[in-house]
Amino acid sequence: SNIARAADDGARAILLTGEGRGFCAGASLKAIGGGEPGDQLRRHYNPVQQAMADSPIPIVTAINGPAAGAGAAIALGGDIVVAASHSYLLLAFANIGLVPDAGATWLIAKAAGRAKVLEMALLGEKLPAHDAKEAGLVTHVVDESALFDAAMDYARRLAAMPTVALGLIRKQVKAALSGTLEETLALEAEHQTLAGRSQDFQEGVAAFLQRRKPEFKGK
């Protein structure tokens, strides 16, 4: 995928946003036509969501307008989610006889709980950016004019941090959402060993002892 390729090419963070006035309206009903909606998900949207989840580098999503359907799921797949104040999330599937997809059910249930995901999925109403932040779905809400700069600031900050550790943190959090305490403790110990072998850890310790700012290389 392009996400994995970016990491292979040396990228240390990804910024994902929409083009134009909206983030993403989700799947096209015309494109589905007489086919099976699930086929389009398996071919297009599910691989994107899985690639985001498996990314070895952090992802910032900037919601620049409406994020509906599968588009809402992709927006919420970011590690840091920055939303323009006028933007909103929308799961309108039930309004046309379908169900949430592209991971929206899992992402919202894990972040905001059963009541919120059922409210969004059953009623099919817009969830404004500020309400999404209050529900724990969005990291930061800013004015539309400040969106790109705010999202880019997060991306630059993450890109300057120890990439190996950040990738392991992403894996730990994902595993913790469905794992037990015992499984989490074991994974933390395993990941701490891997992080401790990184060049960035050596640089972090050296910088601390020398009382200077670390210069992480992402290795």
Rank of each mutant, 00 (worst) to 15 (best):
R114P: 01
E19L: 11
F93C: 09
G97A: 13
G69M: 06
L41T: 08
R21F: 10
Q40E: 12
I108Q: 00
A27D: 11
A67F: 04
L41W: 08
V81P: 04
L118V: 00
L118H: 05
L41Q: 13
M120F: 00
A70H: 03
D54Y: 02
F93G: 04
A115E: 10
M120I: 01
Y45A: 14
A25N: 10
A84M: 08
V48M: 15
A72Q: 02
S85N: 11
G71V: 00
D79H: 12
A75C: 08
E119T: 05
D101W: 02
L90I: 05
A75D: 04
A70M: 09
G103L: 02
A111K: 15
A102W: 03
G97M: 06
P100E: 05
A75E: 07
Q49L: 11
A25Q: 09
R42M: 15
S87V: 01
T105S: 08
G65V: 03
L107H: 04
I96P: 04
S87D: 08
G38P: 07
A75L: 07
T61Y: 03
G33L: 11
A92R: 10
H86P: 00
A75W: 05
G35A: 08
L76F: 00
Q50H: 12
P47Q: 12
A104F: 14
S55W: 06
V48Y: 09
G38F: 12
A102C: 15
A92G: 10
A25G: 13
G65I: 01
I59A: 06
L98G: 03
L29D: 14
N46I: 14
L76Q: 00
A111G: 06
G69D: 00
V99T: 09
I80R: 14
L91N: 12
A92T: 06
P47T: 10
A94V: 11
G69E: 01
A94S: 14
V82A: 12
H86W: 09
T61K: 08
H86M: 09
C24W: 08
G22H: 11
Q40A: 13
N46G: 01
S87I: 06
A31G: 11
Q50V: 11
I80H: 08
A27Q: 10
K110Y: 05
S28R: 03
G33F: 12
G34V: 01
L41C: 10
I59R: 04
G34W: 09
V99F: 15
D54H: 12
A112G: 06
Y88N: 06
I59D: 01
G71I: 03
K116T: 13
R42F: 11
N64V: 02
L76T: 02
N46L: 13
G33S: 12
G26M: 02
Q50L: 13
L98T: 09
A109W: 03
W106S: 09
G78D: 07
A94R: 15
I63G: 04
P58R: 05
S55Q: 10
D54F: 07
A121W: 02
P56E: 13
H44G: 09
K116M: 14
V82I: 15
G113Q: 06
A72Y: 04
G65L: 03
S55D: 12
A67P: 01
N95L: 15
K30R: 14
V81L: 06
G77R: 02
A92S: 15
G33A: 13
P37E: 13
G20F: 04
K30V: 10
Q49M: 15
R43D: 10
P100D: 00
W106R: 15
I59W: 08
G65D: 02
L29F: 12
E19C: 00
A75Q: 05
